[in-house]
């Protein structure tokens, strides 16, 4: 037997994007900055001198929310503005760019691409015109090469071409650590080993001591595993050692006390690891493990039922070869 193809049929999905496209094309020009957004969710908060963060929705991407589900923001330095996270779509990035313009006339000189996930990179398209340095993990380019178009097509299906934007690649990559000087403050970047993804970059602001761990830190929203479970547990320890007291998580409140937030994260990740290991040791198959592992964590996390089973699936594949 060899692979054979049944004739490529014209599927519903083949036509759907153009329909959605047509639907949203008419809306997006006039209502872009506020479309479908609950007003209180989309205020920028000043979390430190010159540091602004918008809380992302604890939800999944929908046409209405424009994938504005991550915590995004910017830092105003003496020489320019650094975007800490750009947003989940071109529309989300354009909204952020308008918020920056309300607060400073300084140019956007840097945009951080914290990791490969769509809710963290598709806002970057809004800043291409500013010709900033796009900063990313050394592994981000290849991760975006493999997944960027895959993510983009799915986002186009949801939001339409105009609101999705292009895949933007880093122009400055970080292999170990790097520093950006904005005149009055320095931002130090750390490239992490495989953890939440294989391209996680964290940042500390010297001015406030605030840590930006991006999706290495989920608060309230269940962490989603897409890199290495054992690696993530290790990198979470490393974050602790950076000595910051407060952090801006990738998802959750705009700022949190780092130690308890990391403890909650570690609580979930170790429950996932230990539960999955126990399931493998007892020959509990993957399809049963997804319903039992880490269940004690259920009340602690939003979207648990949506993501926990998937996390178990990813963890099982990593740990079954131990």
């Amino acid at each position: 037997m060899t692979a054979f193809a049944v004739h490529p049929r014209t599927s519903a999905a083949g036509r759907a994007p153009s329909r959605r496209h047509a639907l949203f094309a008419g809306l997006c020009l006039c209502c872009l900055p506020t479309l479908g957004r609950a007003a209180e969710s989309f205020a920028m908060e000043e979390v430190g001198p010159g540091i602004f963060v918008r809380k992302g929705l604890i939800a999944d991407a929908t046409p209405e929310n424009a994938d504005a589900i991550a915590n995004i923001g910017f830092v105003i330095g003496r020489t320019g503005v650094l975007v800490t996270e750009s947003g989940g779509s071109l529309a989300d990035g354009q909204w952020l760019r308008a918020e920056i313009a309300k607060r400073t006339a300084k140019p956007v000189t840097h945009v951080v691409l914290t990791h490969v996930h769509p809710d963290h990179v598709f806002g970057a398209g809004a800043f291409v015109q500013d010709k900033p340095v796009f900063i990313g993990h050394a592994k981000l380019t290849e991760a975006l090469s493999a997944r960027g178009e895959f993510y983009r097509k799915r986002l186009v299906d949801l939001l339409g071409e105009e609101r999705t934007g292009p895949v933007v690649y880093p122009t400055m990559t970080v292999t170990d650590t790097a520093e950006i000087d904005l005149g009055d403050r320095r931002l130090t970047f750390t490239a992490h080993g495989p953890a939440h993804t294989t391209s996680d970059l964290s940042m500390i602001d010297s001015g406030t001591g605030l840590l930006f761990p991006a999706d290495l830190l989920f608060v309230n929203r269940i962490p989603s595993l897409d890199g290495s479970l054992k690696g993530w547990i290790r990198e979470a320890e490393r974050l602790k050692a950076l000595g910051a007291a407060r952090a801006v998580p990738g998802h959750g409140p705009v700022t949190v006390d780092l130690a308890p937030a990391l403890a909650d994260l570690a609580g979930y990740l170790t429950a996932l690891r230990d539960g999955t290991r126990a399931a493998i040791a007892k020959d509990v198959p993957i399809e049963k493990a997804v319903d039992s592992v880490a269940k004690a964590q259920r009340d602690k996390w939003a979207l648990f039922d949506t993501y926990n089973g998937r996390n178990v699936t990813v963890a099982y594949q990593e740990l079954e070869w131990e």
Binding site: I69, R154, S224
Partner: peptide
Amino acid sequence: ATTALSGPFA
């Protein structure tokens, strides 16, 4: 291909 890669993405 339209769904179901990981990351917060519906």
